[in-house]
């Protein structure tokens, strides 16, 4: 049923440290590998060796640059399902194929009953759901539900594949409902962020923001001097005021 549980016993989720993620895409490939094999339906690929290869991934890593000038930083941002407490992807589902588990809060899709209407992907603000048009159903992160409870695996392996693969330990897995869990403690200490909180989906996953660069006044003045030198070198465009006006007009009109 797409009725949400009034509360979940646990709030399993990921804590992702943006300060130490190096954007290696290791989590992306290990996720794809685990979730395409064994009992899972494959995450389909299309035109793998052609002009425009495309495929389904449950986890993607974006690279951004923040600020400009001397305080500029590179931020690698892994994006996957945040297993929200108010997942509208679940409540909009007309078939009940999408559901949130009462026992651990994981949001899942039943591949046997999904009709592939794509409405859940419209309702998700994080782009966590991708449509597999080979199988005609929606795919999303399962928090490796088939690993974390899998007694055939060694205990230390009962974690999501992305967490195990991360070479910098930028990804932690745990229960956010337990204030004593590693993820809760670290999130509290470093000011873990719930993405786009004001939209009201109450994501469980948290992101640790990158630490600010420490810039000394000496570095700062050096940088300002350099900037000044570059701006002095900038050639003037030599256009008359009228020409500037027409080029402005051209830009506005085109």
């Amino acid at each position: 049923m797409t009725d949400l549980p009034s509360g979940t016993d646990k709030k399993l989720g990921l804590l992702i440290d943006l300060d130490i993620c190096v954007g290696c895409h290791g989590c992306v490939t290990s996720c794809k590998e685990w979730n395409s094999t064994d009992d899972n339906l494959p995450l389909s690929d299309f035109d793998s060796y052609g002009e425009a290869p495309d495929g389904i991934f449950l986890n993607r890593v974006h690279g951004y640059e923040t600020d400009d000038g001397i305080s500029s930083q590179t931020v690698h941002f892994p994006r996957s399902c945040l297993h929200c407490e108010q997942p509208e992807c679940v409540t909009v589902c007309p078939t009940g194929a999408s559901y949130k588990r009462q026992e651990d809060g994981i949001v899942l899709v039943n591949p046997e009953t999904c009709i592939g209407c794509k409405l859940c992907s419209w309702a998700c603000p994080y782009g966590a759901r991708e449509y597999d048009h080979k199988q005609g159903i929606m795919k999303k992160c399962t928090l490796c539900v088939d690993r974390i409870y899998n007694e055939e695996l060694e205990e230390e392996d009962r974690k999501p594949a992305c967490v195990l693969a991360c070479p910098t330990s930028a990804r932690l897995f745990g229960d956010f409902s337990d204030p004593q869990s590693d993820v809760s403690i670290l999130s509290e200490k470093r000011g873990g962020v719930a993405l786009m909180d004001n939209l009201g989906y109450k994501p469980v996953n948290r992101y640790l923001p990158p630490r600010k660069k420490h810039i000394t006044s000496e570095q700062n003045s050096k940088n300002n001097a350099n900037l000044q030198r570059f701006s002095d070198l900038k050639p003037s465009n030599g256009n008359s005021k009228l020409e500037n006006f027409f080029s402005w007009l051209d830009q506005k009109l085109s």
Partner: peptide, 24 residues
Amino acid sequence: EAIGLEKNTIVQNLEPAHQTQNYL
């Protein structure tokens, strides 16, 4: 805010998550 930073931080795309268009 979409990537967990302070509201008014300047953010520009640097490396795309994938090279070709995807479903999203």
